[in-house]
């Protein structure tokens, strides 16, 4: 299969690889996919709770080159966006940016799902009435 230059670039130089402490209340974690399906994405955001701006994003992905590129690109796009802006990212934006062929569209869908899951996790944590952290203060 031929890959677009952008997919190859993300594969060779993946951006923002890594993991954050998922127990932190300012960190949202999304893990989507399944090993049997051949792809699992873990995407994490760290949000400034005062401004609602995503200050950092990290990913780890098990999957094909297009899945790696989709999640790498997602972390690039997330940084500096507000949580609400981040929810606007659509899988079709990823498809066109990376020039994904039809058989790889599911990779972009997975990336969008990962973004939503991470934001959801963050919001749930924020919505929790009393977090462990505040108690200990």
């Amino acid at each position: 299969m031929a890959y677009s230059d952008k997919v190859v670039d993300h594969y060779n130089n993946p951006r923002n690889v890594g993991s954050m402490d998922k127990s932190r209340t300012d960190v949202g974690t999304g893990m989507v996919g399944a090993p049997e399906c051949g792809d699992v994405m873990k995407l994490q955001i760290q949000v400034n709770s005062a401004t609602g701006i995503i200050e950092d994003a990290k990913f780890k992905t098990f999957g094909c080159g297009s899945a790696i590129a989709s999640s790498s690109l997602a972390t690039e796009w997330l940084k500096g966006k507000s949580v609400d802006e981040a929810l606007e990212i659509k899988n079709t934006d990823i498809v066109s940016e990376l020039a994904l062929p039809p058989v790889k569209i599911h990779c972009s869908v997975l990336a969008e799902d990962a973004i939503k899951a991470a934001i959801n996790d963050y919001k749930t944590k924020q919505g929790a009435p009393v977090s462990a952290e505040t108690v200990s203060h």
């Binding site: 299969m1 890959y3 190859v8 594969y11 051949g38 792809d39 098990f62 999957g63 094909c64 080159g65 899945a67 790696i68």
Partner: peptide
Amino acid sequence: VEGESLLM
């Protein structure tokens, strides 16, 4: 490690 990414 997924096979296709390995091949890439």
